[in-house]
Computed example of a mutant assay.
Amino acid sequence: MPADVLPALTVRARAATHPPSAVCTCATPDRVLADRPDGTVVRHGGTVAKAHAPGTDPVELSRRLAVAAHADLSGVLLPPLSPTPVDLHGRLVTCWPYGTPVDPEVPEDAPWEAAATLLARLHTTPPSTLPAGLPPMRGPAKAARAIARLRAAGPHPAAAPVLRAWSGLPAWARAEAPMPGAGALCHGDLHLGQLVRHPALEGPWLLIDVDDMGLGVPAWDLARPAAWYACGLLPPDEWTRFLTAYQQVGGPAVPPEGDPWAALDVPARALTVQTAALAIAKSVAADRPLDEVQQAVVDACDRMAAVPPQLKPGDAK
């Protein structure tokens, strides 16, 4: 991000924590939690300030913030400190309470059941009770952007199977057509990094990051763990914990029992392709080979291209 934005973002986080004239007694020093093209996050004390991606639509972001602050989603989504983003050097900025994330160093404690339960509550919240005008969930659009980034990165021997797998997906999964039956409130980018604990708010875990939230196909929110499981990157017992918890609380993305893959196959394929495309693009940019995990995702794309996806009504090619 531009050099002048990061200091200003830190000032914004401090101002949201206490008046600028006050003596800061926060035990936690200023810290950059993330600094990527799609968002930069700075922490000061118990507050984080996020600069959203360049070009973020202010109306759509405001509607997503209003949903995060809505009473019907208390205990599901971390609410913003203000539902109105501010412009900071051309970037939209929002402020949030700081929450403790999932510890990646302790995978055996991963809160799969909590993630599944939160998703089910999100998916079963009637959109009619929420602020009007919520935009579509951006999952397919993010997958399409990953493919565009792959194509712009230049030649790579692993690109061909990824592009073949992409071409076999239905138009809606490539963001080339509306999502079929897109009537559920969806997170749009679910992974364990999107869960935090905040002791002052309801529930032990809450979902964060509303940038991709909107109306869509709820199976998309299960697609990343499903893809990891299918690629051999998520142990079967962890996948079973996640899926079973989602089914037990009435999540609508999959049947309550039986084979879930008719609903999950297309989204899981799309997330596999997205992951592989980004891995290759980053590999080209850094001039380094794919690592073992990245190669496993590319290999999965190669296998997918040989087996047609399980299409449902509305999954026009």
Rank of each mutant, 00 (worst) to 15 (best):
A253K: 02
D299Q: 01
E60F: 13
L169H: 02
L311K: 00
A13F: 15
S21V: 13
H187T: 03
T47V: 15
L122T: 06
P157Y: 01
A8M: 05
H156T: 12
M137D: 14
A177R: 00
Q310K: 13
A277F: 01
Q194P: 01
V32W: 05
P313N: 07
P161K: 08
S283P: 11
E176L: 13
V254T: 04
P161S: 05
H52P: 05
P85K: 15
I280H: 07
L163R: 02
M304W: 06
P289W: 02
W96T: 02
L78A: 09
P58F: 06
L190M: 15
L61A: 10
L278A: 15
W112H: 12
A245H: 00
A268G: 01
R164K: 00
R36N: 00
P20I: 12
G99K: 07
G314H: 11
P236Y: 05
K317Q: 14
D259Y: 01
C24M: 08
D287M: 06
V162Y: 11
G203N: 07
A120D: 03
P104T: 13
L192E: 09
T47D: 04
A173G: 07
D189R: 02
G55M: 03
D237Q: 04
A219P: 02
L206G: 02
P236D: 08
P157F: 03
T129M: 13
G214T: 14
L33S: 13
P19K: 13
D87T: 14
A200S: 12
A263S: 13
R224A: 07
L9G: 12
A160E: 10
V76G: 00
M304N: 00
M137N: 11
A182P: 05
G203D: 05
A276N: 10
K282S: 14
G75R: 02
A300V: 03
V67R: 08
R149K: 04
S21P: 03
P140E: 02
L290G: 05
G46P: 00
P267M: 11
H187Y: 00
P85Q: 07
L271I: 12
P97M: 01
G133I: 07
D72K: 12
S21L: 05
I280M: 09
D209L: 02
T272P: 10
A132L: 07
A16K: 04
A66N: 05
P37Q: 11
P313R: 00
P29K: 09
C95L: 06
R174F: 01
L65Q: 01
T10L: 11
G183V: 13
L234W: 01
D109R: 00
G258S: 07
A306E: 04
P155N: 09
L243N: 03
L243P: 12
P7L: 07
R138P: 03
A15S: 14
P140N: 12
V266M: 04
Y98R: 03
V217L: 14
E202R: 12
L278G: 14
P267W: 07
S283R: 10
A182T: 05
V93E: 15
V59T: 15
V196S: 00
D237M: 02
R288E: 09
L233I: 06
